[in-house]
Design a protein around this nucleic acid. Structure first.
Lengths: 339, 339
DNA sequence: AATATTTACGCAAACGATGTAGTAATTTAA
DNA sequence: TTAAATTACTACATCGTTTGCGTAAATATT
């Protein structure tokens, strides 16, 4: 029942606690025969070190935290997958925290993590994170952060993203090539860097094509699905509606599909759509959805790898570094000119 | 930089360590004025107790583990959402482990968790978990498990599921009502209880309608997507193909859609489909997908609540209990007779 | 053969928080 | 007025590991 500890193991083996401990950690101080004996007995008795005791002693938690806005989201789910994979390989444990895009919750979580419960944090900030003092404060405590996707520029550390600016350009260019004359951009808030980059790409490409960038074509959506629905509905109601939509995140594209269905707007005839998405069923939608797909799994994996690169070296300071992974454009029906 | 501890706080306050500790825990042994003073200073110095020290001393980790086959799955993602919500409310932390349907990985994870790293485990077993000794062994260590969805009957504890048997009946009945004469069942393995229940419902309803239950109509799919694709393709190739498909899990329905697209089989004209799914975009698919939707969020939430009910009471033994939550049938185009 | 070195182990002090048992000082009861 | 009880605190052992240091025996060096 009760887990066996070093003391019991030592008594049975007629050795001191420290000898047993050292034997298990394969210390050079211990003779070969003794090591063998200890190892065998430990296995037999199913000994496994108490993580709290060794954590306390060594000041190592063997745990990382993943802080993300949500998990019921293909992108983050895949990223977590990649992170968990690397963590398991490194014999680390993964704590998960969801902010639900609530900056106060994010602050609370970081506060909770300050006390060395974890050796490092991988995170994507909320769409409302415009102030980063809680993050720099956290770093001050000596726990490294690595950002992925929703990064925080002001914090000096490693950041793993895709090239959102280029993708923004490509998506917009694609819509223009398919005869869109009036393209709207559905943004998720406007604080976070990926939004600014995606929007920059969008604006840049409009400019390059001598198309007017009307402010009302940038729709600032948020975390409230119902509100987003109304915003998109408003955008697509009336005579003066756009003929192209670039949704910055998956859920806004889905909302757009739903609105179009309600308003009987035909995609892609009346309006063409492209979006950032990791939706598995994109090709099965009606019409199939054109996407910019981020290598979510690899982003998570890479972020974790960078983290462990420093944790292994016992470095708590991670120098600034921007790692870009490439997204892929999947052109499907929703964005194409019907010929 | 370094986190402040009780010793430092005590020195500054000119009190003993134990006084400070008790004051923070609001012990009746400490005078009101002293408590105030301690609390103020602790806040000022941003003191937060070391989780390893108190975990070691109190033999409490304030952490639960969630062990699931995967996270990039709408069902599990939503369940984790529910779990995380309740955990946060209880000031608990959530460790996540993915088995990827690998029984060996599951065993390894349970082994890793035996050493009191967590106070409890919420889990959905892999599709290959036919032997439960690693789970009963785990229970023996005094750490409670609560199952959700993919439960393990043989283990005595609380189990949260939907009524899969009834849902199996309802789905099959619905297909029959829509003129299906030859219904196939796509199973995910055949070990886990939800599969057996869903299949039982399917078989029962066939029997009730005097329809023959041909063994070759039960297709045992697995974890390999490509293999599943071939299995479904084989099922739908040739003259003698079913006119109804009941997919026991979401991904098999998606596979079926893909196969039908390749083989140019029309859903629902040639074959009707219904499946268990939490796919957000079910209604946007072409054709829209009929689903039995499980209350995934609430299942996770309920499982966590049951766990905390016992953890609060410091009970490590959870008596057998089966909690059923209701699924809802969403009839859409994929399963309906065209009139 | 005497000394130096290496080998293989044990002792004990951490790590930080908690809780039991004690102890003065004060208050209450007899 | 004195014993008993209460209040408000402190000392100390403890949780299970890790690790620096000490040391006896074995081996190597002169």
């Amino acid at each position: 029942m009760a887990a066996v500890n070093l003391k019991q193991l030592a008594k049975i083996l007629n050795l001191s606690i420290s000898t047993v401990s050292k034997a298990l950690r394969n210390s050079h101080e211990i003779g070969y025969a003794t090591k063998e004996r200890v190892l065998a007995k430990a296995k037999e008795m199913d000994y496994t070190p108490n993580p709290f005791a060794s954590g306390l002693r060594r000041n190592k938690s063997k745990t990382i935290a993943v802080v993300v806005p949500e998990v019921a989201n293909n992108y983050f789910a895949l990223a977590i997958n990649g992170i968990e994979r690397i963590a398991q390989e490194n014999n680390y444990h993964v704590l998960i925290y969801l902010t639900h895009e609530d900056i106060e919750k994010e602050k609370g979580i970081m506060k909770h993590l300050e006390n060395k419960r974890v050796d490092g944090v991988l995170m994507s900030v909320t769409m409302n994170t415009n102030n980063q003092t809680h993050l720099s404060d956290f770093q001050q405590k000596g726990i490294p952060i690595v950002f992925f996707d929703r990064i925080c520029h002001e914090i000096e550390t490693a950041k793993v993203t895709t090239d959102d600016y280029i993708s923004g350009i490509n998506a917009t260019k694609h819509l223009i090539e398919n005869e869109c004359k009036d393209i709207a951009f559905l943004s998720l808030g406007d604080n976070i860097s990926i939004m600014q980059k995606r929007k920059s790409g969008y604006l840049e490409e409009l400019h390059k094509n001598n198309m007017e960038a009307k402010p009302e074509r940038v729709v600032k959506c948020g975390n409230d699905d119902e509100m987003n629905y109304q915003l998109v509905k408003k955008l697509l109601t009336g005579i003066n509606k756009p003929d192209g939509i670039f949704a910055s995140v998956e859920k806004l594209a889905i909302t757009t599909y739903q609105v179009c269905r309600e308003l009987n707007i035909n995609i892609p005839k009346d309006v063409k759509i492209i979006c950032f998405s990791n939706l598995e069923t994109a090709s099965l939608l009606s019409p199939s959805l054109s996407t910019i797909t981020q290598p979510a799994y690899n982003i998570g994996k890479t972020a974790a790898e960078v983290m462990f690169k420093y944790l292994d070296k016992n470095k708590t300071y991670i120098p600034n570094e921007n790692i870009f992974l490439q997204s892929t454009l999947h052109i499907r029906e929703s964005s194409q000119q019907i010929v």
